[in-house]
């Protein structure tokens, strides 16, 4: 069902098919199909516990037991260690931020630094600080002494230092002030403008609608809707059924 709504010509930069994942003995994801085109922003939507974060973790190689295929520019990355996947060009921004609280802003960025692959946009510390000017003003502050919004920005900045081609953004608008949410939305559009592809999980429909080209709705670990953001907005019954709108 998902492939029907794809633009047929472009080969996707990230293609997930029949993805299943488990936590211990409990199966969380059931045959997820998902694609992300070059330069596209796709929102994974759905209620709490629908499997959004699990999908991102499974793609990133952070789960013990995953089946199916995950292709990054045609190469299967399923079962590879997370560091290998990161070096292949996937950047991961976890939902609970997970910045290194004992390390300064500059040190956090240093951990994320990786050599650039040929075709990915190049990020330097200066360019990252252009995107997040207030991080540039607290270079030597420890991660643990920053506000939630600042930490959220640092998480994104740290991931950008690895010069990724695709960014997996887990709930970027969760738990930050409305002003920061606006900044995050603007930032995602900036990243898109830079040529990055973004797969984000998002519960906030306004946020997802403002930044995404397409939406993919999960319910109980299965894809229930996959289509353009416009078609989702035009069919309110889908939102009612799966997002509780």
């Amino acid at each position: 069902m998902s492939t029907a709504s794809l633009p047929a010509a472009a080969s996707p930069i990230l293609a997930v098919s029949r993805l299943c994942a488990w936590y211990g003995r409990a199966q969380i994801l059931f045959d997820i199909d998902l694609t992300l085109a070059r330069g596209e922003v796709v929102a994974l939507m759905g209620r709490n516990g629908a499997g959004k974060s699990t999908t991102l973790k499974a793609i990133m190689g952070l789960l013990d037991r995953v089946q199916g295929s995950i292709r990054l520019e045609g190469a299967d990355i399923r079962g590879k260690p997370a560091w290998h996947i990161a070096r292949a060009g996937l950047g991961y921004v976890p939902e609970d931020r997970r910045i290194f609280t004992e390390l300064t802003v500059m040190e956090n960025l240093a951990v994320g630094r990786q050599a650039r692959r040929s075709d990915a946009p190049l990020w330097t510390v200066d360019k990252v600080f252009e995107l997040f000017p207030n991080l540039g003003r607290m270079r030597n502050r420890r991660g643990g002494e920053m506000s939630g919004g600042e930490q959220q920005m640092l998480t994104v900045a740290r991931t950008l230092m690895g010069n990724p081609r695709v960014i997996l953004l887990d709930e970027p608008s969760e738990g930050v002030a409305p002003l920061i949410v606006e900044q995050m939305a603007a930032m995602i559009l900036d990243l898109k403008h830079e040529g990055l592809s973004v797969l984000l999980s998002e519960q906030n429909p306004a946020f997802a609608g403002a930044v995404s080209d397409r939406a993919c709705i999960l319910e109980k670990g299965q894809v229930q809707f996959d289509g353009s953001m416009r078609s989702l907005i035009d069919s309110p019954e889908i939102g009612r059924a799966f997002l509780g709108l």
Partner: peptide, 24 residues
């Protein structure tokens, strides 16, 4: 040193360090 920074980062959260592309 970068090595030292990686050691301190991994002491706090080694999975995240790995997800950032550092060969564990």
């Amino acid at each position: 040193t970068r090595f030292g920074i990686l050691v301190r980062a991994a002491t706090q959260d080694r999975e995240m360090v790995s997800a950032l592309g550092v060969a564990e």
